[in-house]
Design a protein around this nucleic acid. Structure first.
Ligand SMILES: [Mn+2]
Ligand SMILES: [Mn+2]
Ligand SMILES: [Zn+2]
Ligand SMILES: [Zn+2]
Lengths: 142, 142
DNA sequence: AATTTAATTGAAAAATATTTTCATTTAGGA
DNA sequence: TCCTAAATGAAAATATTTTTCAATTAAATT
């Protein structure tokens, strides 16, 4: 089994969640590709491994994974219904508009920007979201 | 009438759209506050000015305003169903988590970051989204 | 291995959000 | 004022997400 699936399972377990066939199937699907997944897609694909799976459980599992910071909602022009795996705590995504591939990128030093905005607006800034869109190497070759 | 409503109307007109009572009511609501608005909120508020207004028309009007770059969808933790006015072309929002106030901020020079990410991933980066969350000056005083 | 039990489950229904359809109305140019 | 394409709202359809609840099950305990 994929190492990432085992790592996720361990995180679930240590947070007090049981490892069920259904949850395992969801994790395995998410580990298949670096991409963003909609609940319905996860459901359809995961049912090949676990036919008894219900869509409700997919939603519930994604909720838990979000809560634990193992996946993150991805916001797209077409809508904000999909989720992508996350490696560390604070994370941003780079999304291919053609194939949907999702790549995390490291290091977002926005401090100068944030400080400037904070000073000019008087806001206390507590969080930032940054998402990049473009074309991945594979899709650049058409 | 608010200057901003007249400016928006002119934009609509010059894009070939008719200025209807319904559209004017929607614009007037959006101009009321620097905030993010959900379609249903716009609908309820705008019906005080134009009782015949339908929710469908609110959705359609927001679509057009998005298309023309006069409003922009705002993405929140709770969901991504609201819209906020935009002054210029490329714009980012700073959102108060307490009162919902939305402030645009100027100048987001992300070039060094984008270039670095582009180099390290091989992606061609075409667009970026940045949203900041925090507490506005008024809400800081509790 | 059998027992126990709280966590988990899926189906169905409900709630919420958005889009489509279509007959009627209307803004705005002629 | 007349004309017409654009715009409209009500209703229905579609899409997404959550709630409810009786049945099942993971896994800790015997
Ligand atoms: Mn960051
Ligand atoms: Mn920018
Ligand atoms: Zn979003
Ligand atoms: Zn505030």
């Amino acid at each position: 089994m994929e190492a990432i699936v085992m790592a996720w399972s361990e995180q679930l377990r240590s947070a007090g969640y049981k490892i069920t066939r259904q949850r395992r199937a969801v994790l395995q699907v998410l580990a298949e590709r670096n991409a963003h997944w909609r609940p319905l897609e996860v459901y359809q694909r995961a049912r090949q491994r676990c036919p008894a799976l219900g869509l409700t459980t997919v939603y519930r599992t994604l909720d838990i994974l979000c809560e634990l910071g193992l996946v993150q909602r991805v916001h797209l022009e077409q809508g904000c219904h999909s989720f992508a795996p996350v490696s560390q705590g604070h994370s941003h995504h780079l999304i291919c508009r053609k194939c949907g591939e999702v790549t995390e990128f490291e290091g977002c030093d926005l401090s100068p920007l944030l400080e400037r905005v904070s000073r000019s607006t008087g806001f206390v800034i507590e969080e930032h979201w940054l998402e990049l869109f473009g074309t991945c190497p594979a899709c650049q070759e058409e």
